[in-house]
Design a protein around this nucleic acid. Structure first.
Length: 427
RNA sequence: GGAGAGCUGGCCGAGUGGUCGAAGGCACUUCCCUGCUAAGGAAGCAUACGGGGUUAACCUGUAUCGAGGGUUCGAAUCCCUCGCUCUCCGCCA
């Protein structure tokens, strides 16, 4: 949620910035609503003040034995009047709030302008793309013989679900464990195990609700008792600080978790239908940092390095891109994507996304800290993948395939594979 | 799933219809006193939002005693619904 005071004070500027990311702000709607809100609120509070004062007088005069009928009648009138204004005020504030909840974050000034992913800016390309002296296969063709099974995934659940078994299941587990260990042991994140089902408040806090409900899987107990499957570990990790006032000395708070992620991907029916690039369920190691507002952009760069470190250790070629204004996610002020090289597609594909949400989520969550002057101030929240496990598996399979159809296991993962170095038919 | 108890400010804890945003204590901050062992004294100390303003510091108002409704001139206090916590029984990994 963006700061309503920014809208009140610098409306034109905010509207312009939102437009740069493709959001049309309804200025007229907002101004009218805000005008209503103000008049209703002033009137309501005025009447409340009168009522409180007169009611107080009733108590006093009653104890003095005076006749209070006239006063009571008067307050009664005020209360009736007040009720109307209270209802109007509530309705207006609800409307205003609902509108605010659906406005995306304001892009940081350093974010390049652009309309879509074509306008993203490559920051750096790291690692040598391997050359193959044979025709490369994609991960589906390489790994089906080792336990990657899409048919059974479909049988059990439907499209975009995968069953992994034997060596591929093992490798998949190894990747997740390895990534989590690096984030905890080398980068200083606190390891967390989180709920995978969360309440609507949490999803409003991080920005998935109310606007993107169709992307979520929902579970139902009673009619109004909903829990959602987390679309990313960002949700439980970031919401740890919801409705809290943190101590400045505890900042930054660095959290990580290996969690499954569930996405209904409602708007992506035609995309990536083959293989496990785009699944309804996948695992991801998430990094979250809760920082002082002055430090969030340093933290952003640091988190990109933390994600890069994983790719480097896995010996995977990748590039870092800065997302342009038009391609950023809802809550982000600035985002870097890490894209890993996939030889079968002869292209880079997203494997990590690291964002600074500034105070956007913190405002929704009322996540604050006592600043240098003892004033409650909104925190900044950042999140990033470190990394997506399923896509890392794809990248490893494809980049490390051999002419013989075996898969070399990256050195960093060998200890997690009980010393195994190659995936092959009879290990 | 059954039975019972409870939910008040950072914490403990008073308050059962009227001047209560809420006694008292602890913790914390500043100051005073004291030559010193967690000694004494004074003051301050919740959050959100609104209005005004010389727009960081000030003045003022409103709301908030788990949440939401209701009764009432007036609700922390009475009624209803829901949520959460704890105890006992059952069940279970």
């Amino acid at each position: 949620m963006i700061d309503i005071n920014l809208l009140r004070e610098t409306l034109d500027e905010v509207v312009k910035k939102l437009k740069s990311r493709g959001y049309e702000f309804d200025t007229k709607f907002f101004i009218n609503l805000e005008k209503d809100r103000k008049s209703f609120q002033i009137k309501t509070q005025e009447l409340q003040e009168m009522r409180n004062q007169l009611s107080k007088n009733i108590g006093v005069e009653k104890s003095q034995g005076k006749n209070i009928d006239e006063l009571m009648a008067k307050v009664s009138d005020i209360s009736a009047d007040l009720k109307k204004f209270e209802i109007s005020l509530n309705e207006t504030q609800l409307k205003l709030n609902n509108y605010l909840l659906e406005i995306p974050n304001i892009p940081h000034d350093s974010v390049p302008f652009g309309r879509n992913e074509k306008d993203n800016v490559v920051v750096r390309e790291i690692g040598k793309k391997k050359t193959f002296n044979f025709e490369v296969k994609d991960h589906v063709d390489v790994a089906s013989q080792y336990g990657l099974d899409f048919d059974l995934g479909t049988k059990l659940s439907g499209s975009r679900f995968t069953l992994m078994r034997s060596q591929i299941a093992r490798l998949h587990r190894a990747i997740g464990q390895f990534m989590l260990d690096v984030q905890v042991n080398e980068h200083g994140y606190e390891e967390c195990y989180t709920p995978f089902l969360v309440n609507p408040e949490s999803l409003i806090g991080t920005g998935q609700l109310p606007k993107f409900e169709e992307d979520l899987f929902v579970t139902k107990r009673g009619e109004n008792d909903l829990l959602y499957l987390i679309p990313t570990g960002e949700v439980p990790l970031t919401n740890i600080v919801r409705d809290s006032i943190q101590n400045i000395d505890d900042l930054p708070i660095k959290l990580t978790a290996l969690t499954p992620c569930f996405r209904s991907e409602a708007g992506s029916y035609g995309k990536d239908t083959r293989g496990m690039i785009r699944q309804h369920q996948f695992e991801k190691v998430e990094m979250v940092q809760i920082t002082h507002p002055d430090q969030s952009y340093e933290a952003l760069e640091e988190m990109v390095r933390h994600a890069e470190n994983i790719l480097t250790k896995l010996d995977l070629p990748y590039r870092v891109v800065t997302l342009c204004t038009g391609d950023m996610g809802f809550g982000a002020a600035k985002t870097y994507d890490l894209e890993v090289w996939l030889p079968s597609q002869n292209t880079y594909r997203e494997i990590s996304s690291v964002s600074n949400c500034e105070s956007f989520q913190a405002r929704r969550m009322m996540a604050r800290f006592k600043d240098e002057n003892k004033k409650n101030t909104l925190l900044h929240t950042l999140n990033g993948s470190g990394l997506a496990v399923g896509r890392a598996l794809v990248a490893i399979i494809e980049n490390n395939q051999t002419k013989e159809g075996t898969i070399n296991i990256p050195t960093a993962l060998v200890p997690y594979m009980n010393g195994q170095q190659v995936i092959q038919s009879n290990p």
